[in-house]
């Protein structure tokens, strides 16, 4: 027994030494370690995602033919409407291209859209994230915006070979600028995810709302991205401003809460907008480890 105790003491000492070494280790080694464990889990994540797809498939398989026919009919109707819209969009697009040509407008925000399935979701008081089944192999880069339709889902924070982690709009590490609907002067406000309490639903905070902004009575106020920060394209929907009086945390500004546009935890698929050119933010991250 004594021997065991002595061995324990030696082990504690060894552990302490190891902790010291671990702290002094270059961050690259630690990052490699994290990356390795991450990659180890990637296949499982893929498998889970595929499994979910399969479940969905069989669930659909079990529907009756009548149901499917009805769904098909509905879809055809939607399709026709969309096709019509697409035609008119075509004209607008052509006009846009022509105008850009005339004014020699330089398009700074070109994105490559990568569609990705959601593998798992994970959230706590300190983060709100999802894992998607696309990674470095698919050209995804950290910092890219993630959207679904025209609503913002979040931002890519970590990229692995075949998976990526996306911080949701409600995550404390998410921050972007936004416009409030009904503010003609287009003053920018700040959207920042809030750490939701355990068991509480996650929200984001909208701050720096000008003192003289008032919500239009009796309607929901939509919150849009500004497209000015060089990360998110403009006019994407972030959510709606929670109705009710805005609190005035700081002198001169008001604060409100953002209700995310979609149920972020029920997303099956998202698209990642990978900028075609490196953004300064990415360059900044590369030149120096900021954190």
């Amino acid at each position: 027994m004594d021997q065991n105790r002595q061995g324990a003491r030696a082990s504690y000492i060894a552990l302490t030494i190891f902790v010291a070494i671990w702290i002094l280790l270059p961050s690259a080694v630690r990052r490699f370690n994290r990356e390795a464990f991450s990659e180890f889990q990637a296949p499982a994540l893929h498998l889970a995602g595929k499994g979910r797809d399969l479940a969905k498939f069989w669930e659909l398989k079990s529907r009756s033919n009548e149901e499917m026919a009805a769904a098909g009919r509905d879809l055809a109707r939607i399709n026709a409407a969309l096709e019509l819209k697409l035609k008119s969009m075509d004209d607008v697009r052509r006009e846009n291209v022509r105008l850009r040509d005339i004014t020699r407008y330089k398009d700074t925000a070109d994105y490559l859209s990568v569609v990705a399935r959601v593998a798992t979701r994970d959230s706590s008081s300190w983060w709100q994230r999802i894992v998607i089944r696309k990674g470095r192999n698919d050209g995804i880069r950290p910092g890219s915006p993630v959207i679904f339709g025209i609503t913002v889902v979040g931002r890519v924070t970590a990229v692995h070979l075949t998976t990526s982690e996306v911080d949701l709009v409600t995550s404390p590490s998410f921050r972007c600028t936004a416009y409030l609907e009904g503010d003609e002067q287009n003053r920018i406000v700040l959207v920042n995810g809030m750490a939701g309490n355990s068991l509480g639903s996650a929200r984001a905070r909208i701050s720096v709302i000008p003192y003289d902004y008032f919500q239009p009575a009796g309607q929901t106020t939509q919150v849009f991205t500004t497209g000015m920060g060089g990360v998110f394209p403009s006019r994407l929907l972030l959510g709606t401003l929670e109705s009710g009086p805005l609190s005035a945390k700081e002198a001169n500004f008001k604060e409100g809460q953002l209700i995310p546009a979609r149920d972020l935890y029920n997303l099956q698929e998202v698209s990642v907008l990978v900028p075609l050119h490196q953004t300064p933010g990415e360059a900044l991250l590369q030149t120096d480890q900021l954190q």
């Binding site: 060089g230 933010g281 900044l284």
Partner: peptide, 11 residues
């Protein structure tokens, strides 16, 4: 301002 907000680390 927008650039700073979106491109600098939050915390």
């Amino acid at each position: 301002v927008a650039r700073f907000i979106e491109q600098f680390p939050v915390d």
